[in-house]
Nucleic acid binder design. Structure first.
Length: 433
DNA sequence: TCTGGGGTCCTAGGACCC
DNA sequence: TCTGGGGTCCTAGGACCC
C-alpha cells in the first residue's frame, strides 16, 4: 500500500482520552498516577475512568454504590461531575481543532470530526494526524487520539485502535491490506459504531461475530434481515460514506431536554415547580443560543417504586399557538402542565422539561392578537437574563417559583466536586512561590 | 347482514450514541 | 438503600381518511 492518500475525501475523528478524568488531572497533579473515576449527576453512576481505574475493573455506566468498596480498597479517587470545567475545556479544544481542516462537526463534548474534501494528494494522513495531536496537547494539556479514514464508521474504528499506535494516531488508508484485515478480525461487532448489545446479539445468532464477518455481508441482505441503520454501517465499513455529507452544515438540533434526578425524593409541589423553573430557564437559554423557538413544550415527572426495575415516568405535552423562546412564557406553560400531572403525596425522584418542534426564531412568529411591542419586550428581557448569566453565572439572576434556598432542597448530590478552575475567579488555582 | 384496501400522520417506545 | 443526562433515528401500531 502506498504511504500517502490520493485525492479522496478524508475524515478524522479527534477524541480526548478519558475526557472528564483528563480535565480533572489538568488542575490537580496529585491525580496523575492514581486510579480516578468521575461520577454522573447525583453521584449516581461511573461515567469516566482513568486507565488505572479501567485496569482495576471499574465499568462504565454502573451505579457507584456497587463499586465504593473496591474504590476504598484500591485507593481510587472518585469525583463528582464538574460540568462547568468540562464544558469550558471542551469549548477551548473544539475551537482549536476547527482550525486544522475544511470542516468540523462537534459530535460530543469530547469528540469532533474534521474533514478534508479532498485531502491534499501527496500529504501523509498519519503525519497530519500526529501534528494535530501534538498541537492540541501542547495548547490544552489534554491527551487526544486520532483516527483517519474515508468514512466516519472507519474513522471511529481507527480511533479505537489508535491507542495501540506509538503516536496515538491511526490512518486507515495508510495501513497495508494485511494490517486492515487483522484489525477487522480482532474487532467484535459490538465495538463498532452503531452496534449495541441488541444488534450484536442478533448478528451473533447468524454467526457474524467480528468486523471481518460483517464487512463481507451484502448491505441489501442485512437491511432485509435486520434493519436499515445496520445496513448503513456495513456500507460505511466497506468504505462508502453515508453518514453526514462533507459539505453540508451540521444539522440543527430538533429538541432540547433539561432534567436532573433529585438529591432525595420530593413530594412538595412548590419544590417540583421550582425545579421545573430552573430546568426550563436553562432549556430556553439554550434555545435562544441556537437562534430557535419552540412550538411544543413538555414536562415529565419520575418516581421510582420498590420492586420495579424501571422508574415510572409520566409526560405532559402542550402545543403552542405561536413559536416562542421567551423564558417566562415557557415556564408558565410548564407550571400549567405540572398542575395537571402532579399527584399529591407521590414521592418524585426526577423531573424534566422538553422543548420540541424547534423552528428558526422569527419564523411564523406573531399573530393578529400579539402586540409587536410585547414580543420585543419579552425578547429583550430574556436576552438580558442571558447576558447576566454570562457575566455573573447562573446564580446571578434566575426564574423561581418557590425556593430561594441555596442549594435548593431538591438539588442533586455532588459530594466530591472539584472547583470551577477556569470559569470562576474564586476558584482560580493559587501558585505559591 | 354485509364490513376493502391503501395511504398518511402521529405517538410511544426501542436502540443506540457519548 | 443507593442506577445520568442529552441527544438522534427507526419502527410498530393506532387513528383517520377516501
Amino acid at each position: 500500500m502506498s504511504s500517502t492518500v490520493s485525492s479522496l475525501p478524508l475524515i478524522a475523528l479527534v477524541d480526548v482520552n478519558n475526557f472528564y478524568v483528563s480535565c480533572e488531572r489538568l488542575f490537580n497533579p496529585s491525580l496523575a498516577v492514581r486510579p480516578v473515576v468521575v461520577l454522573s449527576s447525583n453521584d449516581g453512576c461511573i461515567v469516566a475512568r482513568s486507565d488505572e481505574a479501567k485496569a482495576l475493573g471499574f465499568p462504565m455506566g454502573d451505579p457507584w454504590f456497587r463499586w465504593r468498596m473496591l474504590a476504598r480498597r484500591s485507593g481510587t479517587i472518585a469525583l463528582s461531575s464538574n460540568y462547568e470545567l468540562y464544558g469550558d475545556m471542551s469549548r477551548r479544544i473544539m475551537r482549536l481543532a476547527s482550525g486544522f481542516s475544511d470542516g468540523q462537526e462537534i459530535y460530543s463534548i469530547d469528540e469532533c470530526f474534521l474533514s478534508w474534501h479532498p485531502f491534499p494528494s501527496g500529504r501523509s494522513a498519519t503525519r497530519t494526524g500526529e501534528a494535530i495531536r501534538a498541537d492540541l496537547e501542547r495548547w490544552t494539556g489534554l491527551p487526544v487520539k486520532i483516527g483517519l479514514a474515508g468514512t466516519r464508521t472507519l474513522a471511529k474504528l481507527a480511533t479505537h485502535w489508535a491507542r495501540t499506535r506509538p503516536g496515538s494516531v491511526l490512518a486507515w488508508p495508510e495501513l497495508s491490506p494485511e494490517e486492515q484485515a487483522e484489525i477487522l478480525c480482532r474487532t467484535p461487532v459490538s465495538a463498532l459504531w452503531g452496534i449495541g448489545p441488541n444488534r450484536a446479539r442478533r448478528l451473533g445468532q447468524d454467526g457474524i461475530r467480528n468486523a471481518a464477518d460483517l464487512v463481507c455481508c451484502d448491505p441489501g441482505r442485512i437491511a432485509d434481515r435486520f434493519d436499515r441503520p445496520l445496513a448503513q454501517t456495513v456500507h460505511e465499513l466497506q468504505g462508502r460514506p453515508l453518514f453526514g455529507s462533507h459539505s453540508s452544515p451540521p444539522p440543527a438540533r430538533q429538541s432540547i431536554l433539561s432534567s436532573r434526578s433529585f438529591g432525595s425524593p420530593v413530594t412538595d409541589p412548590t419544590l417540583l415547580a421550582d425545579s421545573l423553573c430552573v430546568y426550563m430557564g436553562r432549556a430556553a437559554e439554550k434555545l435562544r443560543g441556537d437562534g430557535a423557538s419552540a412550538l411544543t413544550v413538555g414536562i415529565w415527572l419520575e418516581n421510582r417504586q420498590r420492586g420495579r426495575s424501571r422508574p415510572v415516568r409520566e409526560w405532559r405535552l402542550q402545543g403552542l399557538a405561536r413559536p416562542t423562546s421567551d423564558s417566562r412564557s415557557l415556564i408558565a406553560v410548564a407550571l400549567d402542565l405540572l398542575a395537571s400531572l402532579h399527584e399529591p403525596g407521590l414521592p418524585y425522584t426526577k423531573s424534566g422539561v422538553y422543548l420540541g418542534d424547534l423552528v428558526p426564531a422569527g419564523a411564523g412568529s406573531g399573530n393578529l392578537f400579539d402586540h409587536p411591542d410585547a414580543i420585543g419586550r419579552e425578547d429583550r428581557l430574556s436576552r438580558l437574563v442571558d447576558e447576566i448569566h454570562r457575566r455573573f453565572g447562573p446564580r446571578g439572576l434566575g426564574y423561581g417559583a418557590g425556593g430561594l434556598a441555596h442549594p435548593p432542597a431538591w438539588h442533586p448530590k455532588r459530594d466530591f466536586r472539584s472547583p470551577a478552575y477556569t470559569t470562576d475567579w474564586h476558584h482560580l488555582p493559587l501558585v505559591r512561590a
